[in-house]
């Protein structure tokens, strides 16, 4: 996406929608890259055999990988990561290789220079064979507060 737009409080109103910003489709290489970058080396995200031994049909994404994508999306909507004052996510389902991660946000409130945004990241894809997942599911629910220049 490159450098985000310069954004100010003017023009931001409650109910305003942001996104969708789409990441992926996720690959196993994305999981390996995030494991190396973050130190989250839980083999359930990288080792097929281990994942199956833990009852998963295949490896799946670290929650924090999708959380990182969503944080980036919010940061870009509001002028860059330096404006983010609070960021919170709850993980609701796993994301699988081949899934796209679709990030959206909505302005909930505006108080002074602080904007509160509700967030969602949905997984979109076929999912692993045999799981019969819905094609699209909410994987992360979140909220962010950003401080914008007056």
């Amino acid at each position: 996406m490159g450098a985000p737009q310069h954004i100010t409080l003017e023009g931001i109103t409650p109910g305003m929608d942001f996104g969708p910003v789409v990441f992926g489709p996720l690959s196993r290489e994305d999981f390996v890259r995030y494991a190396e970058a973050s130190g989250d080396d839980n083999p359930i995200h990288q080792d097929e055999e281990y994942a199956r031994s833990q009852g998963a049909p295949t490896v799946f994404a670290m929650g924090m990988l999708a959380a990182g994508y969503l944080a980036h999306a919010v940061a870009d909507w509001f002028g860059g990561p330096q404006h983010v004052a609070r960021y919170k996510v709850r993980f609701t389902t796993r994301a699988w290789p081949g899934d796209e991660i679709i990030c959206t946000g909505k302005v909930e409130s505006l108080e002074g220079s602080r904007v509160t945004v509700s967030l969602e990241a949905r997984r979109h894809g076929d999912g692993p064979e045999g799981l019969n997942l819905d094609e699209e599911q909410v994987a992360l629910i979140g909220e962010a507060e950003v401080d914008l220049p007056e």
Binding site: A3, E36, A71
Partner: peptide, 16 residues
């Protein structure tokens, strides 16, 4: 490490 992490989470803002 910051650059590696930014790339891993798709953060392509030049300030990172």
């Amino acid at each position: 490490k910051v650059q590696e992490f930014a790339i891993a989470v798709g953060e392509d803002n030049p300030i990172c």
